[in-house]
Design a protein around this nucleic acid. Structure first.
Lengths: 219, 219
DNA sequence: CGCTAAACTGAAGTATCCTTCAGTTTGGTG
DNA sequence: CACCAAACTGAAGGATACTTCAGTTTAGCG
């Protein structure tokens, strides 16, 4: 493609001015990406939006792909940190409560810039394909896995690795759809997610015992 | 962009020869998309792969976007039809059994061309953004919704619309991840998905009752 | 066989985009 | 204040890509 073998390393910003420029470039990338998609993401446009010349952009980044990946990494890190933090601060709680709190935290983070979240997801999928999902989710997955392990006593008979995989991606799928359909704020969403996770862990083996043991009041 | 206001309608293929050409073009699009992603999807390359000249391509399609959308529509239709068919043929069964069968059918369809599935997902997300998700999933969602309604008696107290939304997207998220990590063939996957869905419907209210109403051991 | 419409060809025109680098401006420092 | 390195500029070179259309080939048919 365009990217020939690159010979020299990009510069790292030394002065404060330069560090600010890098920040501005990243933010500009995020904005343009949301507004015009990856197809409309142009080095020129990014530079323009950043109020900087194209040359400057190339001084710190290999091109738009690296810009996007950097923005994405930050976004992912933010979400992961929030989740990890919540996981720690709720270590003493019962699993049900803990999971709800973690889901709540996750929703909160994702609510910050939903459209950016979506745009990044789509773009990274296009840029790095399956490898992207693998990388990104494996982190969260192992975090979830270790949380589940903390409650192993309550989860006898549950394949924790499988559970981490299924639950992480199930929740992710729902949240992604919620973003797309603008349902993130729906107060029922958090309930539903909690129910989804706990329901799985509770393990409705194969038989539905809803209208049986569970005396749900009819009306 | 490139696509100025188009003035004349694309031709519809009249002769069998032309209809075949259209098919070849669609298949070529699918192949190139999988191999090089949307960024590497070029009208020239599509035509080349199809063994046809570029001009021919533009005789039937507005450009690569329309090609991709057409391929995607077919793929979605295939999956939806399989699901709808299964939903009908299992109408008499209990909900648990029915859901498992439908999930099995869905997995089978998705297993056909996993990488195409992924590539299309990524590309459509980039092309049409949220609107794509909305459109595509709403179909499946309403199918799921009506299936759930058939078993309304067993599902008292469940918000069926919400359930359809959550379950459809949760399952979708897991399957997408399974494709990316090459776990589609994992025999545990179908179990897990079934458990996910039934667990939600079963509605583990808020309390975990896993290991025999295990009084939450202190630790 | 001869004719018409459908189908097909592919070189050419136009539009961007990417990326570099020689030159200019700015910050820090003795 | 003078100087060096860091930071920044932006026009220009190079590479495709998209799309059209005038011309050629082919299918169907009387």
């Amino acid at each position: 493609m365009y990217a020939k073998a690159r010979e020299f390393q990009r510069k790292a910003p030394r002065q404060a001015r330069a560090r600010a420029t890098v920040e501005v470039l990243l933010e500009a990338t995020a904005q343009v990406l949301v507004e015009r998609g990856y197809a409309g993401l142009t080095t020129t446009r990014i530079a323009e939006r950043a109020g900087v010349s194209v040359g400057t952009l190339y001084q710190y980044f290999e091109g738009k792909a690296e810009l996007v990946r950097t923005v994405h990494q930050r976004q992912v890190a933010r979400a992961f940190d929030a989740l990890a933090h919540k996981a720690l601060s709720t270590e003493a709680l019962a699993i049900a409560e803990r999971i709800e709190q973690m889901l709540r935290a996750l929703l909160e983070v994702k609510s910050a810039r939903p459209s950016l979240s979506m745009a990044l997801h789509a773009t990274m999928l296009e840029l790095d394909g399956p490898a992207y999902l693998e990388r990104t989710i494996s982190q969260t997955q192992s975090l979830v896995g270790s949380v589940l392990e903390n409650h192993a006593d309550d989860l006898r008979g549950v394949d924790l690795d499988l559970a981490a995989f299924v639950l992480t991606n199930a929740v992710d799928g729902v949240i992604e759809a919620a973003i797309a359909t603008d349902r993130l704020a729906d107060p029922h969403l958090i309930e539903a997610l909690t129910r989804l996770v706990l329901g799985y862990l509770d393990g409705a083996s194969a038989k539905l015992r809803v209208s049986g043991s569970n005396a749900t009041s009819p009306g």
